[in-house]
């Protein structure tokens, strides 16, 4: 990492022709072509991103200008009628609620697993476990959906009636005797799906905690939990936050698992255990087959909202990671 010409440390003189300065000759044509191709690919990537934003916005404008109701507050999705009326209020509510439930379950558990792998598991088990967690991140979402719909849902009805008996008075945990195809089930399933990603990022961070910090705490007589609370968690906090936000990004955009498990309806229902509600991605997948061209535009408009939300969440996660890099660099 010492060569100034190849690493990204000091900016070279204008242009990228490093050896022309060395050899005193003009840049070779091969170099020029190769640089052209690789720079072109980078630019192509930017163009694709810009095109995504531009085309989604263009179709969304078509859709929203034809919408006879308020796009943000309407509790209905009927873009095919004579008076097309559709809005994203239900979808925004459902997406937010299911992701919040997913985060509330997944983040503590994922931090626990990460700690288990990095600090509690027997040494010989630790690295195979990390490996298995990485493999689980690769299970396709449709399979989680299939499992959720055919296995998880029937097994949750008992638990939900139990919740209803003791917590039903809150309103949130009230449960009639339907199938458990509700936003809460979606939240549980999303939690299981994002566990691997949150775990593996958190584990990386926990493994980077300087050994000296931990040994210093141990030498002072701290118990293992005190070591973790005073040296591991403070060091890993920003890493855990960004891991959670990456997980949140996944949960927000998850389509198939939600589409298979949820029994959708266009109502905002605050009893989360009962079927109903919807999310952005699920709504696109379930309404697509019956949509005409304007209906597809309407779905694209809701997709644009989802796109913007995930951009913000992921951008924030990246910013936190970038900040942390500087911080740990100063300490390393």
């Amino acid at each position: 990492m010492t060569s100034p010409s190849l690493t990204d440390t000091p900016p070279p003189p204008a242009g990228n022709d490093v050896h022309s300065a060395v050899s005193g000759k003009a840049v070779r044509p091969g170099d020029r072509i190769f640089l052209g191709f690789s720079r072109g690919s980078g630019i192509a990537l930017l163009v694709i991103m810009a095109a995504i934003a531009a085309f989604l916005t263009y179709r969304s404008v078509l859709a929203i200008s034809g919408d006879k109701a308020n796009f943000f507050t309407t509790l209905d999705w009927n873009p095919t009628g004579v008076e097309p009326k559709f809005g994203i209020a239900v979808l925004a509510f459902g997406t937010a609620v299911s992701s919040v439930i997913a985060m509330a379950i997944a983040v503590p558990v994922a931090v626990g697993i990460a700690l288990f792998i990095s600090h509690y598991a027997p040494r010989r088990l630790a690295s195979p476990l990390g490996y298995v967690i990485d493999l689980l991140a690769a299970v396709p979402s449709i399979i989680y959906g299939l499992w959720g719909a055919l296995f998880l849902v029937p097994h949750l009805t008992g638990l939900y009636s139990w919740f209803d008996d003791y917590l039903g008075w809150t309103g949130i945990f009230a449960y009639g005797d339907g199938a458990a195809r509700s936003l809460f089930t979606v939240g549980i399933l999303l939690a299981i799906m994002i566990l691997p990603i949150v775990t593996s990022v958190s584990r990386e961070v926990f493994l980077q905690v300087p050994k000296m910090h931990e040994e210093a705490a141990l030498a002072l007589g701290a118990t293992r939990w005190e070591v973790i609370r005073m040296s591991v968690l403070p060091f890993g906090r920003s890493g855990v936050i960004s891991a959670s936000m990456l997980g949140l990004g996944r949960a927000l955009g998850e389509t198939m698992a939600v589409a298979t498990v949820l029994s959708p309806s266009f109502l905002i229902n605050t009893s989360l255990l009962d079927p109903g509600g919807g999310t952005f991605a699920q709504n696109i997948a379930s309404k697509f087959s019956e949509a005409d061209e304007f209906g597809q535009d309407a779905l694209i408009a809701s997709g644009l909202v989802l796109f913007v939300i995930t951009l913000l969440v992921n951008g924030a996660a990246r910013l936190i990671i970038a900040r942390r890099k500087e911080y740990s660099g100063a300490n390393a």
Partner: peptide, 13 residues
């Protein structure tokens, strides 16, 4: 940013 694009949004594009 692209890593975080939901797959359904890529499909809509």
């Amino acid at each position: 940013v692209m890593t975080g694009i939901p797959s359904i949004v890529a499909g809509l594009f």
